[in-house]
Design a protein around this nucleic acid. Structure first.
Length: 889
RNA sequence: GGUCUUAUAGCUCAGCUGGUUCAGAGCACCUGCCUUACAAGCAGGGGGUCAUAGGUUCGAAUCCUAUUGGGACCACCA
């Protein structure tokens, strides 16, 4: 072996092996006789760039998929991107704006041309970045939610649901984004607490009879007459007021019953209506009703047949219907109207107030509730089928706590507003007839046919029909992802969908449990009659080390690619996984990547050591090496079982920690030290080969976590043939564990540590040798190990003649090291007396238990037996210590 | 406002059906060491009334109740 650098350099090897894997098609999957293991990637935005959340998410997926592949399964990780309609359209609009082009100046086709250009230019960068991470996706399968197959699927599903009567069109109060100029679903609105103002407005009463106030009534009055006071946070909407509402049981407002009031400034006369929706305690108990601009007011409007006046334009400015402030922005008007009300003496007071305001998830502008014609999908039936499998754990959530969240949403589900007033997306396949009405069809030809039938006019052509301008919500394509990736919508029951569906696991963030996870489950049952995935693994949010969400504006989010450059992909992957228990947020710290990199280096150097040994075939295996190999084999088996168990429960960070400790502590610190030949001495062949086998097994166990370094070393540890790779090798399966060897070695390690401790305390060089004596039960089979690692000349039973000994106790055995004049008797005595004191205290508590009749009667026999043993052991230790003190005195 | 969740070492977290895996791990920290694989390292070591108060039990970090403090989600009063 040529000279190897003493530091591992990841940059040199990572791209080399990724190329090698691609060249050999190791990531590819085709249906065959093996058990499938399928993951569909949560498709990132097509024009997005990799952030820490993606890193975490995709590292986990890669770990799972690589492990499955090494377990002999047919592993298929299907990648792709999402067209992200609002986000992408917003980016394109911005870009055009920079070039001085307004969207409204373009035709739909022209705009889409720009959008596709943008998509082709920036699209898929994120997938290239995933390759740097080592992601073993089957790239030939790369899909896009707006490619032909997926688009066809979406349209087909829309038509199907329409035919089933689950899709309908209707005027509803929707969340309107005045910047993107589109409706949003409830899930796309984020409520934020805000410091705002509560305005108290005067609504003068018409035809006031001036009857005296009855008991409990609160009547406001000034020179202009009697008036009601209405508290509102949105005075700019008074132009849309069509009623005032009081609670019929509100004593203080009884006098308003049946009256009419005048909207301030506007001077429109509106009725006072009564409904117990109104909270008597809030404000003055008088509510202004603006059916066009508030969800609850809309409900009141429906109930009492009120007029609705829509005072806003789509972009949030005041419309003609408002009559005043026309063309001005809503927030501008709020300021102006405050002043105007003040000037007109119609503003009683203004109070500071905190309330929650809805913002658009994508454009971050304040949502305007707006009445508009939209398409909706009925959810009741879909929700019903999707609930039970999750509650019954047929489809498992990790962590399970999200089952509650899931149930809560499904049980209170509202219909899904699926239309968006955007161009970038799947256009709704509804076609309006010249004389009114519409048809829904997958193709234009079919639309014409249906239109002819519907109108009875057989001369209708496509030119007579007008297709709906709206697009579908992005999630309306994402919810089909696990099916459409295998073309299961267009070609039901095809070979791929039958083989790969249901997929094995979905790895995603809990923030999209409603947007995406729940809806995929619905569509899965609707179109495949089965769950889309057997498990869902919810990752946490990546935060910085002091717990803040990573965000561009805070500047606390590291660039993943820079991290990879600095620590290597393996190091970063490990850094992510070290602190990522399922469902917990991860507090990311570069120090974790450093730990990952250090671990790479540790593996690298262990490799250097082993490869540096020369083998002497005529050498016999030493006793210590024989013990070491037998023990390590057991330790390996034990850890493999542990890792398997962790993976079954999706405790991935724990699995990593187990293999980390196995390699660093058990293998490097203990095993290699046990078998390591003296400097420049050869090693026997048997031990050498066994060590290489162990090393190879360790590399395999590490591979899912750290694919690159493990491949590099796998290729170098033995001669490999052309197309061999660790990523397609088989993981060792668990074997029966002989715990006895492990237990014995633990005792041996304790003895070695005890001796090293004495050396450290007394400042004795590790090179200086001496003898060791024992008293009590002692298994001598590991003596060779103790002698080698603790640098001991000989081991013998204590013969009572070695007065100047320092002792310690392991289990019930006393270990003594003769140190001649190095010993300070007083110190030793003090130490032992301290220990006796502790043991006596311990003994008291054990005896107390054993003297308690109820304990002996009720506790399990083995528990009682254990207490007896504790008692005996403590007593024997005390006796030993007392004898030692006596001998030192 | 509702629902859920959580509190264990300086930090991040394990601790399963109450009892020897019961007080643990990793990191950080401290003390020695540049010992020929590795200072990105080696050897050794010190850290916790298991949030607080009650209760159940022979026995509680573990089960129950309340309180306090985190977190998440849903709803929302103008």
């Amino acid at each position: 072996m040529e000279e190897l650098a003493n530091k591992y350099n990841p940059a040199e090897v990572e791209s080399k092996w990724y190329e090698y894997w691609l060249k050999n098609d190791f990531f590819k999957s085709k249906p065959d006789g093996r058990e499938p293991y399928t993951i569909v990637i949560p498709p990132p935005n097509v024009t997005g760039v990799l952030h820490m959340g993606h890193m975490l998410n995709n590292t986990i997926q890669d770990i799972l998929i690589r492990r499955a592949r090494m377990m002999g399964k047919n592993a298929c990780w299907a990648p792709g991107t999402d067209h992200a309609s609002i986000a992408t359209e917003a980016k394109v609009v911005n870009k055009l704006a920079q070039e001085g082009i307004k969207k409204s100046d373009l035709t739909r086709d022209q705009f889409l041309e720009h959008a596709w250009e943008w998509t082709h230019k920036h699209g898929g960068i994120i997938l290239e970045q995933l390759k740097k991470l080592g992601a073993s996706c089957d790239w030939d399968r790369t899909a896009f939610t707006m490619d032909e197959t997926r688009s066809k699927s979406v349209i087909k599903v829309f038509c199907d649901l329409y035919k089933k009567g689950l899709i309908y069109r209707g005027v509803r109060m929707v969340n309107w984004d005045p910047q993107a100029l589109t409706a949003l679903s409830d899930e796309e609105v984020i409520y934020k607490e805000e410091n705002s103002k509560l305005f108290y407005l005067k609504y003068y009463v018409v035809d006031d009879s001036s009857e005296p106030a009855k008991e409990g009534e609160v009547i406001h009055e000034d020179a202009k007459g009697r008036y009601a006071v209405v508290a509102t946070t949105r005075p700019e909407t008074i132009m849309g007021d069509t009623a005032m509402c009081i609670n019929p049981n509100d004593p203080k407002n009884q006098w308003l019953k049946g009256k009419k009031v005048i909207v301030p400034i506007v001077n429109r006369v509106i009725p006072v209506i009564e409904d117990d929706y109104v909270d008597v305690e809030f404000g003055t108990g008088c509510l202004k009703v603006t059916p066009a601009h508030d969800v609850n007011d809309y409900m009141l409007g429906e109930k009492y047949n009120l007029q609705t006046i829509d005072i806003f334009n789509d972009n949030g400015t005041l419309s003609e219907a408002a009559g005043i402030y026309i063309g001005k922005d809503r927030f501008e008007v709020r300021k102006e109207i405050e002043k105007d009300l003040q000037d007109a003496n119609l503003l009683e007071k203004v109070e500071a107030y905190t309330n929650k305001v809805g913002y658009s998830e994508r454009t971050h502008v304040v949502i305007e509730p707006k009445l508009s014609m939209q398409w909706f999908l009925k959810m009741e039936h879909l929700a019903k089928t999707a609930l039970e499998p999750v509650m019954k754990d047929e489809l498992k959530f990790y962590p399970a706590k999200y089952k509650n969240t899931y149930r809560n949403w499904l049980e209170n589900i509202k219909d899904w507003c699926i239309s968006r007033q955007l161009w970038w997306g799947h256009r709704i396949p509804a076609y309006f007839l010249p004389e009114g009405g519409f048809v829904v069809a997958e193709t234009e030809d079919e639309a014409v046919k249906l239109a002819q039938e519907k109108s009875g006019n057989s001369s209708l052509t496509i030119n007579d029909l007008r297709q709906d301008e709206d697009c579908l919500d992005t999630w309306f394509s994402s919810w089909l992802w696990p099916i459409s990736l295998f073309d299961g919508i267009n070609n039901p029951g095809n070979e791929e969908i039958k083989y790969y569906y249901p997929t094995s696991v979905l790895v995603t963030g809990p923030d999209i449990i409603f947007f995406w996870v729940a809806r995929m489950i619905m569509s899965g049952y609707e179109y495949e009659g089965d769950m889309p995935f057997k498990s869902v693994y919810f990752t946490g949010i990546v935060r910085d080390k002091i717990g803040r969400k990573m965000s561009k504006s805070l500047g606390n989010s590291p660039d993943p690619l820079e991290l990879i450059e600095k620590f290597g992909a393996d190091g970063v992957r490990m850094g992510m996984m070290l602190s990522a228990p399922a469902g917990n947020d991860i507090l990311f710290d570069e120090a974790l990547c450093e730990q990952g990199r250090n671990f790479n280096n540790k593996i690298w150097n262990a490799f250097r050591l082993v490869k540096g040994w020369s083998v002497n075939k005529s050498l016999e295996q030493s006793q210590s090496s024989k013990i070491a190999t037998e023990w390590f084999q057991e330790q390996l088996n034990k850890t493999i079982a542990e890792i398997n168990d962790c993976f079954e429960k999706y405790r991935i960070s724990e699995a990593l920690m187990a293999v980390y400790k196995l390699f660093w502590d058990e293998f490097s610190s203990w095993y290699l030290e046990m078998v390591k030949p003296a400097y420049q001495q050869p090693i026997d062949e048997k031990t050498y080969n066994q060590t290489l086998d162990f090393f190879e097994t360790l590399l395999k166990l590490l591979h899912p976590f750290m694919p690159f370094i493990t491949e590099e070393l796998y290729q170098n540890i033995k001669e490999r043939s052309e197309k061999e790779s660790i990523m397609v090798s088989l993981l060792p399966t668990g074997k029966e564990i002989k715990d006895i060897l492990i237990t014995k070695m633990e005792t041996t390690k304790n003895i070695i540590a005890g001796i090293r401790n004495i050396r450290a305390e007394k400042g004795i060089s590790p090179r200086e040798t001496f003898n060791m004596f024992f008293k009590g039960d002692f298994d001598e089979s590991n003596n060779a190990i103790i002698m080698k690692l603790a640098n001991i000349d000989g081991i013998a039973t204590y013969n009572g003649n070695n007065d100047n000994c320092v002792s310690f106790i392991v289990g019930t055995t006393e270990i003594s090291i003769p140190l001649g004049n190095n010993i300070n008797a007083e110190e030793e005595i003090a130490k032992m007396e301290n220990e006796i004191k502790y043991l006596e205290g311990f003994l008291v508590s054990v005896e107390k238990k054993l003297n308690n009749e109820k304990f002996v009667a009720n506790a399990k026999p083995e528990v009682v037996e254990n207490e007896r043993k504790k008692k005996a052991d403590a007593e024997s230790k005390i006796a030993t210590l007392k004898a030692n003190i006596a001998s030192l005195k």
